[in-house]
């Protein structure tokens, strides 16, 4: 029982990472209908910047993280402005290819700037842990931080999408870009904002991975493993990202824990295929009901 719970906890932790990455996919997809294959490498850059600021330059962890979050918002913003905006009106296929190019470009630059060795971001409370009374389960400081950060992020996104002027405008744009424009919503700004937010959640995901000891220039490939989480939840559903991430993380860890590592990765794809067969638009995604 406690083995099961322990696995579930680490599953949720890794699931948080998937959820955050999925959220990045979802935000950009919702606002622009583009699958952003650079999501993983935006995440990697964010993690390396936090690492450099905190470990190399000795900044306090949370200061480094805060600064990186702001910077990654602007990185997303700039990418949209310089790379995506000029592609406006091109076929979605070409735009997706451009995001793949962008991913490799960032990876190359990161290789030159941060080196090719594996790093770990030290979390200030690292080593400490909490034993849950009753059940024989330990929560590490990293686990607690991960779950808290993820929950706060999703809460913030929820409030943003439901309550704020920009959030509602973004959903309106996702629903019908043409009419959103007629209502005076500047859809270019919306897509820049979406990319900025994708940068922010990317950094959070990357920093969490870094705390767990996964920081190297190819860590962006993890985003591809999180991709099933986004599809699972529904590519246009914010809430779906968190559920998809959690399911994927837990299922993966449980399968890995009981059946051995080889099954771990398989699980994600089996789940993805099964869900897509049953619900092609994901668990929470909406069928495209828009009129042409």
């Amino acid at each position: 029982m406690s083995f099961f719970l322990q696995l579930t906890i680490s599953g949720l932790a890794i699931g948080s990472v998937y959820a955050l990455i999925a959220l990045g996919f979802v935000v950009v997809y919702k606002a622009t209908r583009v699958l952003n294959f650079a999501q993983g490498d935006m995440m990697m850059i964010g993690a390396f910047v936090t690492f450099t600021l905190s470990s190399t330059h000795g900044w306090p962890f949370f200061v480094a993280l805060g600064v990186t979050l702001v910077a990654s918002f602007f990185l997303g913003f700039v990418i949209e402005r310089l790379v995506l905006r000029p592609m406006l009106g091109q076929p979605v296929f070409s735009i997706i290819i451009v995001t793949i190019g962008l991913a490799w470009l960032m990876r190359g630059i990161a290789g030159m700037a941060f080196g090719h060795s594996e790093q770990r971001i030290t979390f200030p409370f690292s080593g400490e842990s909490v034993r849950l009374p009753g059940v024989d389960v330990t929560l590490s400081a990293e686990n607690i931080a991960t779950l808290t950060m993820t929950m706060l992020t999703f809460l913030a996104f929820f409030v943003f999408f439901q309550r704020t002027r920009w959030g509602i405008a973004m959903r309106a744009t996702a629903s019908n870009q043409d009419v959103a424009q007629m209502m005076g919503i500047n859809v270019n700004r919306i897509s820049a904002l979406a990319w900025g937010l994708a940068g922010v959640v990317g950094t959070l995901a990357g920093v969490i991975l870094g705390m767990l000891g996964f920081l190297f220039i190819h860590v962006g490939d993890t985003a591809l493993r999180a991709f099933p989480a986004a599809v699972l939840g529904g590519l246009d559903a914010t809430g779906g990202a968190v559920v998809g991430g959690a399911i994927l993380g837990v299922a993966e860890t449980l399968f890995g824990g009981y059946l051995g590592g080889a099954y771990r990765e398989l699980m994600a794809w089996i789940l993805l295929i099964v869900v897509l067969l049953v619900r092609p638009f994901g668990l929470f995604g909406s069928k495209d009901i828009e009129r042409v």
Binding site: R171, V179, M182, E290, R291
Partner: peptide
């Protein structure tokens, strides 16, 4: 716009 294009998901 024509055709009552409301934001359906909102």
């Amino acid at each position: 716009p024509e055709g009552r294009q409301v934001f359906r998901d909102l």
